[in-house]
Every structure is written in structure tokens, then in C-alpha cells.
């Protein structure tokens, strides 16, 4: 006897999806469409006269040394901080996952606290901490007799500013990755480690042959989130360095902000073109990453 198949309740599915679809369309899709639309115009500010200029903003953009600089700064920052956050958080997660580790809850809270703090506030506080005259680091170095070293403005020096901002960023966001790593490590059954131990594997081999293959999907998610966070570094950079000194920390977001809002004559069209290129840049990175993920999965 044929069983009567239950009808899929499409009406209810779409009804429940509706609020999300409406919200997503209003606050994500529509702004994206408008940004691309603005990027093809000479738009100065909202309400100003708008002229269609075709791809002229894009042509200008790739002739603008400061835009190329901002793309490179964003890329450099990403290459600097993402691996650091990825590896350091993994190391801390392994340590916290170790059975003999004491005060795990306290340490987890300790590492997660900076994640809860606002980036803009962290930026302001670190300006004071790293101050070359009255910052605590400077005071200690001065008392130890290293006055010249103490007076180096870490945030005012082109050769140190990106690394300094990067270190602050890793400190701020490491707790987030740590929680993901811990969750993924705890999802691996103890039996697998015990079996590896019986087969004579040491701790390193257990990690290499048991944990690592199982961590790959989590690693991919952690990498995507870290890259996404590293690209959206606007609040921290604005308050910490404002893109300086001399554009050394001007990421694409700050470049867009400068043209869209800070300039005497705002250039919404130009800033929108920069935002569109930036979105493409980010998409390319994510596509590359998924290609790498497939390759790594096969290898493992």
C-alpha cells in the first residue's frame, strides 16, 4: 500500500522566513545595490546633483596611489594578524584543553574579556598605554635608564605602527577564536586519543593524526571569521592611529570613510566605487580560501 506523502508546508516555511528575507533585503541587499549604483555617479553628498559618470570613478581609483596604499595596508594587516590570531589562539586552546590545566574557567574568561570590550575604547586606552612619555611602558623603561627606547612613539613610527596595531588587534580578538578552538577540540571523542595512545602515538602524533584532520572544518570557519574581522578594523584604527602616520595604517575602510565623510567636499560616488572594489577583493579572498580548504581536506 502506497504511503501518502506529507505535503511540504511551503506557506509556513516562507512565512517564517519572511522577516529575515525582508530584513536582509533592506539592510544588506539594497545597500549593496545602491552602493554599486552610486559608484557609477559623480555623487558628492546626499541631496547633491548627481551625474552618471560610468566607470570613471573606478579608473580614478586605480590611479590613486592612496587607494592602492590602503589595499596594501589592508592586505599586510590581514597577513600579519590572521595567522598570529589563528596560531596563538590554537596554542592557548590546546593548553586550556589539557587535562592538567588548572583554573580553566578563570583563564577562559580572562582571554575572552577583551572581545567584549569596544574596539574604539581599546584604541583610546592603548594610545595612553603606549605613550612615549607618560605611558606605563615608557615610565618603566625610563626608570630602567632606557630613555631613548622609552621615547620611541610606537604608534607614530611607520616601521612599528602596523605591527603594534596588529598586536593589539590579536590580543583583542584572540579570545573569540579560542572559544571556537576549545569547542572543536572538545567535540573530538576521548576514545580516538586513547586508541592512538594504544597504537603508540605520542602527544604530537595524536594531534597530527587524530585532532588535526578533525579540526580542518573548524579551522576554515575560524580563518574566515578572522579574515572578516581583520578586514573590518575601522573602529580600532580610527581611534588608535586615524590611518597615520602618513597613511601607514589607512585601511580601505578608513579610505572610504575619508572620502565619504571627512573630506571638505564629500565624494560618495568615489567612496562607493572603493567600497565595491573592496567587496570584490574580500570575495576573491574567500573564494581562494575555499579552494585551499578543499585542497587541504584532500591532503589530510
Amino acid at each position: 500500500m502506497k504511503q501518502k506523502r506529507a505535503r511540504t508546508p511551503y506557506f509556513w516555511i516562507y512565512l517564517f522566513l519572511l522577516p529575515t528575507l525582508v530584513g536582509y533585503s533592506m539592510y544588506t541587499l539594497w545597500p549593496i545595490i545602491r552602493t554599486v549604483q552610486f559608484s557609477l555617479t559623480s555623487m558628492r553628498g546626499f541631496g547633491s546633483k548627481v551625474r552618471f559618470v560610468g566607470l570613471s570613478n573606478y579608473v580614478q581609483l586605480f590611479q590613486d596611489e592612496l587607494f592602492i596604499n590602503s589595499l596594501l595596508v589592508t592586505l599586510k594587516f590581514m597577513l600579519l594578524v590572521v595567522p598570529a590570531r589563528f596560531l596563538i589562539s590554537l596554542l592557548f586552546a590546546l593548553a586550556l584543553n589539557w587535562k592538567k590545566c588548572q583554573s580553566k574557567t578563570l583563564l577562559r574568561t580572562f582571554f575572552f574579556l577583551p572581545v567584549l570590550t569596544t574596539s574604539a575604547i581599546i584604541g583610546v586606552v592603548f594610545i595612553l598605554i603606549l605613550d612615549p612619555t607618560f605611558g606605563p611602558i615608557s615610565v618603566i623603561l625610563s626608570k630602567l635608564g632606557y630613555v631613548d627606547l622609552a621615547r620611541i612613539p610606537l604608534l607614530g613610527n611607520r616601521s612599528t605602527v602596523l605591527a603594534t596595531a596588529g598586536a593589539i588587534w590579536v590580543w583583542k580578538w584572540m579570545g573569540n577564536s579560542l572559544i571556537y578552538w576549545l569547542a572543536s577540540l572538545q567535540s573530538i571523542p576521548d576514545e580516538l586519543y586513547e586508541a592512538a595512545k594504544i597504537d603508540g602515538a605520542n602527544s604530537l602524533q595524536s594531534f597530527r593524526y587524530v585532532a588535526a584532520p578533525l579540526l580542518v572544518p573548524f579551522a576554515f570557519i575560524i580563518l574566515v571569521l578572522s579574515i572578516s574581522d581583520a578586514i573590518r578594523v575601522f573602529n580600532l584604527m580610527l581611534t588608535l592611529t586615524n590611518g597615520g602616520p602618513y597613511f601607514a595604517t589607512e585601511t580601505v575602510e578608513l579610505f572610504i570613510y575619508r572620502h565619504a565623510f571627512q573630506a571638505t567636499t564629500q565624494r560618495m560616488g568615489y567612496a562607493s566605487a572603493a567600497a565595491s572594489v573592496f567587496a570584490m577583493f574580500f570575495s576573491v579572498i574567500i573564494i581562494l580560501q575555499s579552494v585551499v580548504k578543499r585542497f587541504v581536506k584532500k591532503e589530510v
Binding site: 605613550d131 612615549p132 612619555t133 621615547r151 612613539p153 604608534l155 607614530g156 613610527n157 592611529t241
Partner: peptide, 15 residues
Amino acid sequence: HPASLTLATRTVRER
């Protein structure tokens, strides 16, 4: 002042 590269008008007043 060596902090000048990170100072704005308000923070100059503090120094």
C-alpha cells in the same frame, strides 16, 4: 614632544 605624532589639538593641551 615625541608623542606629537599621535596627538590631536585636545591632547596637546593635556601635555
